[in-house]
């Protein structure tokens, strides 16, 4: 075994060429994941609320968006933004941006479904009571329905963000120097320690995702207790 290959290149795996060059490796993966989580949450929330709207011109496009994205592999979505955005936008997107936009668009469709499920699982009386106390539909959504629905769905959100963190590895295919790409660069140069390198980066991804998963489980327990008390 050649574990020294992993140790000798540890800083490249963690930070890429930084500080003498662009940020890469695990640090870039984390940045991509954070940007992705932020963007996907807000876009997903918007699409989810549109999907629940009574107005067909909001509901139908949202439905089509969700179904198309959820029926397409993430890799295809990434190719769309990377190879094909220029044809549509007339402007090229650097790999990092294309990957992040693709991650946001892809994950937002799943977030939208979580939002919808969260809202639908609330008792109907909530909306009726909020409207009855004089709030408009939008106000009722923002102040009464969404806070409860989103709170209940926190574990599902965290699970989706774990997926997103894993999905940042696909940036590799369009040449983004995140952790997986950094690992293949090292593997391609050394060529004597593929198992060690891939086990090492698998452990890094695992660490991050496992912490998130464990966090989500604890939250789930807490939320369940909270709801049990409330009823």
């Amino acid at each position: 075994m050649h574990w020294d290959v992993v140790w000798n290149n540890m800083s490249y795996l963690l930070l890429g060429a930084y500080p003498k060059g662009p940020l890469g490796g695990l640090a870039l993966s984390i940045v991509m994941a954070l940007v992705g989580i932020f963007g996907a949450f807000w876009l997903g929330l918007l699409v989810g609320v549109f999907r629940l709207s009574k107005k067909a011109w909001l509901r139908v496009p949202a439905l089509i968006y969700i179904e198309i994205i959820r029926g397409t592999p993430l890799l295809m979505v990434i190719f769309w933004f990377y190879f094909l955005a220029p044809v549509v936008l007339g402007k090229s997107l650097p790999g990092e941006q294309a990957a992040m936009i693709a991650l946001i668009v892809f994950t937002s469709a799943y977030i939208a479904e979580i939002v919808r499920a969260g809202v639908l699982s609330l008792p109907k009386g909530q909306m009726e009571a909020a409207r009855g106390s004089g709030l408009s539909h939008t106000q009722a959504m923002i102040y009464v329905i969404l806070p409860q629905a989103l709170f209940n769905m926190i574990p599902s959100f965290v699970n989706q963000f774990v997926s997103l963190t894993k999905d940042t590895s696909l940036g590799f295919i369009i040449g983004v120097t995140e952790l997986t790409k950094a690992a293949t660069q090292i593997n391609n140069r050394t060529m004597n320690a593929p198992s060690e390198i891939f086990i090492a980066i698998a452990a890094m991804y695992f660490l991050i995702c496992y912490v998130l998963t464990a966090f989500s489980r604890r939250l789930e327990g807490k939320i369940n207790r909270y709801q049990a008390r409330g009823r």
């Binding site: 000798n8 290149n9 800083s11 490249y12 003498k20 060059g21 120097t177 660069q185 391609n188 140069r189």
Partner: peptide, 16 residues
């Protein structure tokens, strides 16, 4: 290229 010694590859020491 970033994976093609000696045309273009990531140097281990300088990471460039």
């Amino acid at each position: 290229k970033d994976s093609q010694p000696p045309f273009g590859y990531v140097d281990e020491a300088s990471k460039q």
